[in-house]
């Protein structure tokens, strides 16, 4: 379970989040929508402990994220998978090594890694691309590697921050289908996006942010900006 309780975030005098209260249950698929600067990315940063709230509390399962010390953050992040708009693959590692890395940092044994990575690469349709470096892959393939990396360690939650922002429509729908598939397997999915078509087609919960506030939170919602 993820919860934001009366969360405020300010950078100097600029307020980015104001009194955000949000609760996300296990297994949900939640789309976070809003204009640029609405606070979507800040909310994600607070959840993974990259930023601390100015006020309020952020919970992730057993962790009160805002109270975690720097050295405790890696443990928290091993329960979360993150997919970025710009893929953020390690350029000096092959697709296989990028996916394996998420397991290696968690201290998994080599035997387990050798078993899980090919399975996940197969699942995202890249079973034959494991030896390729990121610069040898297309945008859609890179994003699929990023998704494979985010899910290989079976996290409770996957956060996808504008995962289709750099992709053409065909690859966009492939990625969305993949994310839905992962969600159907029981993983909570938080999708921060600008893509109206994607959100409207999902027919899932939509949380709308505007100027740092949650202005709408609907089950089976639509992309509506004021």
């Amino acid at each position: 379970m993820i919860a934001f309780q009366n969360v405020y975030k300010q950078y100097g005098k600029m307020s980015v989040l104001e009194d955000v209260n949000l609760r996300i249950n296990p297994g949900e698929f939640v789309s976070l929508v809003g204009r640029s600067g609405a606070g979507k990315s800040t909310l994600i940063k607070l959840l993974i402990g990259e930023e601390k709230p100015t006020r309020g509390r952020v919970f992730f399962g057993q962790y009160e994220v805002n109270k975690l010390r720097d050295k405790e953050l890696p443990t928290l992040r091993r329960h979360i998978g993150i997919v970025f708009q710009d893929f953020r693959l390690l350029p000096n590692k092959t697709a296989y090594e990028n996916v394996a890395f998420a397991l290696e940092v968690a201290g998994r044994l080599q035997g387990e890694i050798n078993e899980l990575v090919p399975q996940v690469l197969d699942m995202v349709g890249l079973g034959d691309r494991g030896k390729n470096f990121p610069h040898e892959l297309s945008g859609g393939e890179k994003q699929r590697v990023a998704i494979a990396r985010s899910m290989v360690h079976r996290p409770e939650v996957i956060i996808a921050d504008e995962p289709t922002g750099n992709l053409d429509p065909i690859h966009t729908w492939e990625i969305i289908a993949l994310l839905q598939k992962i969600n159907q397997l029981g993983t909570t999915l938080i999708l921060a996006t600008h893509d109206k078509d994607v959100v409207n087609s999902l027919d899932k919960r939509v949380v709308t942010l505007d100027q740092g506030r949650v202005i709408r939170d609907e089950e089976k919602g639509k992309y509506i900006l004021v």
Binding site: I48, E50, D70, K71, L73, P74, T75, L76, R77, R78, I80, I82, R88, L89, L90, P91, N92, F101, A102, V105, A106, R149
Partner: peptide, 16 residues
């Protein structure tokens, strides 16, 4: 630095 960010975001400890 991007690589370091990615390593940290997937849960790598400071030592790693």
């Amino acid at each position: 630095r991007e690589e370091i960010f990615v390593m940290r975001s997937v849960g790598a400890s400071n030592a790693l």
